[in-house]
Amino acid sequence: MSEESKAEKFLELFNKGKEFTEELLRENQRLRYRLASMETEPAKSGASTEEIQRLRDQITQLTEENKRIHARFSEIEEENKDFANRYIEIEEQNNNLANLYVASYQLHSTLDFREVIQIVQEIVINLIGAEAFAILLLDEKTNELKTIASEGEDVMPNVDQISIRLGDGVLGQVAKTGESYYINQDLDASAGSITIERPLAAVPLKIKEHVIGLIVIYKLLQQKDSFSAVDYELFSLLAAHAATAIFSSKLYSQSERKLNTIQSFLDLLTTTS
């Protein structure tokens, strides 16, 4: 190999070495820059490691808070439902109290026996929602329960002529024990089995423990398919008021009759003497 070609070869190798070294330097520079920028990135976004940690903690805290709020929201929704149901119940109770108030007011507004019976009938139709029913009074001399007022003879024949001895059958038992009787089943299903002796409901008219008669229901109005829970309570309360009103008016008419008899007797005595 001549001296000239050796020199060329060396120059070529040198140039390659130079290029390689330059390339290494560039790569080094690039990596240093990357490292520097990686180190300075958090600073660029304005957040330090502590800040990031704080934010992470805050996120965890907020997630927890969110869960708590969700849970509370569900609780409140449940409470809301409860309140809505309670509201409906209270509305119903208000309605019943108003019914009871008006009914008792009307029942005690007169001492006329026929008028009291008429009011009891109105209450049973309009407030209880009965289409066929009877009001029975107990004759204490004969121990017999007899119809004194009724409605719905077309759907329950002979409802106007009931006569049952105390203790006999369902009605006699209700009068004897003073315990209300209700059919505890679907009213539609039991409709066929309703008879004079086996009504839908029988509620005693009693003053304390003393039964003076019964209100007996045979059929409800078409639009009322069953007794509601509050009906039973309302029915008993109304029956108690009706009993006192019937009893007072009966006593009043008896005393009126006696007073008239005595007055006539006195008049007779004074005119003859």
Partner: peptide
């Protein structure tokens, strides 16, 4: 015509 109903409605 029913005084009871009249009173009940009026009450409402």
């Amino acid at each position: 015509d029913s005084p009871t109903m009249r009173q009940l409605i009026s009450f409402s």
